[in-house]
Design a protein around this nucleic acid. Sequence first.
DNA 1: GTTAGTGCAAACCTTTTGCAGCTCT
DNA 2: AGAGCTGCAAAAGGTTTGCACTAAC
Lengths: 171, 171
Amino acid sequence: MAPKSIKTSLAQRGVRLTRQRQILLDLIDGSGKHLDAEALYQLARAKDPKINRVTVYRTLKMLKETRLIDELDLMHLEGDQHYYETRLKQEHAHVICLNCGKVEEFFGEPLQRLRHQVEKNLGFQVVLARTEIGGYCSHCQLLRARELEEAKALPVPVVKSRGRRAASPTA
Amino acid sequence: MAPKSIKTSLAQRGVRLTRQRQILLDLIDGSGKHLDAEALYQLARAKDPKINRVTVYRTLKMLKETRLIDELDLMHLEGDQHYYETRLKQEHAHVICLNCGKVEEFFGEPLQRLRHQVEKNLGFQVVLARTEIGGYCSHCQLLRARELEEAKALPVPVVKSRGRRAASPTA
DNA sequence: GTTAGTGCAAACCTTTTGCAGCTCT
DNA sequence: AGAGCTGCAAAAGGTTTGCACTAAC
């Protein structure tokens, strides 16, 4: 069940808690992962085969505009779709491995400092913040080092590496 | 002219400096603004009416992959297109007014701290970082306060406000 | 001369819209 | 009862791809 806070928050605004929305809300904060519209649609379809993709998009848009969920890009590693997560958690940055697609979350004071400084120095009223960091996770750094070693030991003709697609991101 | 550094950097990789690429490179770091593919295409067309939109996309993709430019979303305030800027500047966050679309840049130590902490705490090798902050600029905060005052003084029926489109972002 | 890069047309993927019918409060 | 939502079909917006031709090195 999606936490009462989101549902009551919606109810207070006069937003109807339809069957479709309940399903989507439960999925969004039930799964620990960052889901995109299509994944959400597929999962929702398992619970209600009648649900329409458009309803998913409309619900996400509404939740985003009412600031109940955050929209992420995750560095567009797999395409141009967006990912979503509840706003219940503490503010965090998303750290994405450009090789394997793994997504880690970083909670730490620089994020709050940043927010405060922007408010103070620019006289800005911060409503939402999104920090995404791309690079290589410790695992892929090792992999890459090993590959380089092998290349040195066995100098075969260099294969031109075109931008590789990463694996699907995980929470 | 785009700085020699970018052009030599490309030349060293064996990338050809075609007429089209020269135009685009000059535009990208000549204008102080954050341009999207379409704006870039229109500007490039003024200098070379034969240039094709596809070439713009291909060039941007290549520059992004070779890490010579950064891709921004600017909170998708006007649509789902991307904006681009050279990587010559110091790392900075983009602060976007959700009402008027103005984009300010924030340089400050929390950004470096964040980067360092992610590298140290997660053993991550940071390659690129993107921080976007949405909210209300000082000007729009005043506007909004005034509107609220007027609403209080003259209690007309509330007009439901649907998500408004912001003005085009500026550097 | 070679190979990378360009232009064109067409496809692609994600998201939005118009409208008629359904449903939650 | 009636506004708010949904589903369907169709379109829009942004970006990529296949292929033959062109131009940079």
